[in-house]
Each structure stands twice: as structure tokens, then as C-alpha cells.
Amino acid sequence: MPGYIVLGKRSRHETMVMPEHHHDHEHGSHLSDTELRVRALESLLVEKDLVNPDTLNELVDTYEHKVGPRNGARVVARSWVDPDYRRRLLDDATAAIDEFAFTGRRGEYMVAVENTPTRHNVVVCTLCSCYPWTVLGLPPVWYKSAPYRSRVVIDPRGVLNEFGVTLAENTEIRVWDSTSETRYLVIPQRPAGTDDWSQDELANLVTRDAMIGVARALTPDALARAEAAS
């Protein structure tokens, strides 16, 4: 990429490129402009007593370890076993999700959309990265990346194929473009062969990708394989 240099230790999934003029070569240090700038902001804001480092650590811990797709999985599993809850969830997802009293920042106005044998839902935020933090945690890099944001709205069937979801020709696909106000949770179809499963067991079948709509819920076989592999 002419005119750009790659800085820092990054995975190929979050390649960090900055215009060359942003980097000060004179120092020859391992600290990138980005790392320095973040440290400078934190040090100044702490010094001015505008943020507390403990609060920052707690925020990181919450979103790294406490809030995540396990929350959404519990919501979906309950909707599979409790028809009244499912109705409430489809009717007013914000209130139905609040019944769980999850930790962390509340989701904005939430909408739950259900997959059926004839309709499949998939969620994107074409402009940025809007995502239901309360039930799914922070979004993965691919969700925030230009390839997904640009393509899922013009070629949803092709994108779903790449994620391993092949739909019948006559299955309707609805693509939901999130905003800062409205966020979506896909309720995947309950897999066959789970009639006698408990709500907690069912939650293990509900993956992050299934709730974004780029995957189906795991089958009992797929879950057994995943558990054997880990």
C-alpha cells in the first residue's frame, strides 16, 4: 500500500495502517503514534480527574469478560421454550430483554426478528458498527469491516453462502440495517431433535453468529463436535 506503513503488532484482521506522516521516525521506538496518543489522552484525563483508572479497568473487564453473546443465547433459549416470553420479545424486545437485568450499558431500542422456514433475517450496520451490546457484547472485526457492511445489503444470499448458510431459492431474506437508536437480535430457528432439552442446554446451541443471522443455531451433533474439539 504505497504511502502507508503498517505499525504495531496486529493480526491480519485488524491491520493498522496510518499515513506515513503520522509516524515520527526519529525516535525509532516501538510505540506507535496511536499507542502514544491513547496513553496521552488517558494520562491527561486522569490528571485532570475527569476519569478514574479503576473505572476504565472495570469497563474493560465488563465488556471483555461479563457481557457477551451468552446473554443473547439465554434470551433466545427462553423464547424457544416459553411461548409467552417469545410473544413479549417479538412485541417489545427492549422490555423483554430487560427482564434479564443484564449488566453493562443497556441496548438502545431493541427489535427481535424471528427466522422461520420461509424467512431468514440478517443484521448489519452499513454506516458503522451499531450492535446490541447488552445481548451480544462488542461486535467482531468482520461485522465492523467494509467488506461485510458493503456487500450483505446487495448480495445477502452470496454472503450467507460464504458463512455456510445455504438457503432455498424461495426463502425470503430480510437485511436489517442498524442505527444508533435501533438494534436487532435475530431469533434463529430451534434445531430439530431438541424437544427434551432444558432452557440452559438449549442456550449452548445459540451462537453469536446465529443471533447476527450469518449462521443457524448449532445442531446437537455440531455442539457435540465443538465440545469434543475443545
Partner: peptide, 16 residues
Amino acid sequence: VFHAEWERRCFALSVA
């Protein structure tokens, strides 16, 4: 969830 320490700090600073 994060790919570098500065991402953690940048996220937390923004939210705080």
C-alpha cells in the same frame, strides 16, 4: 474482544 492494549484503553476512555 480486543486486539491490543491501546484498544482496551481507547474503548474505555470513549465510554467513560
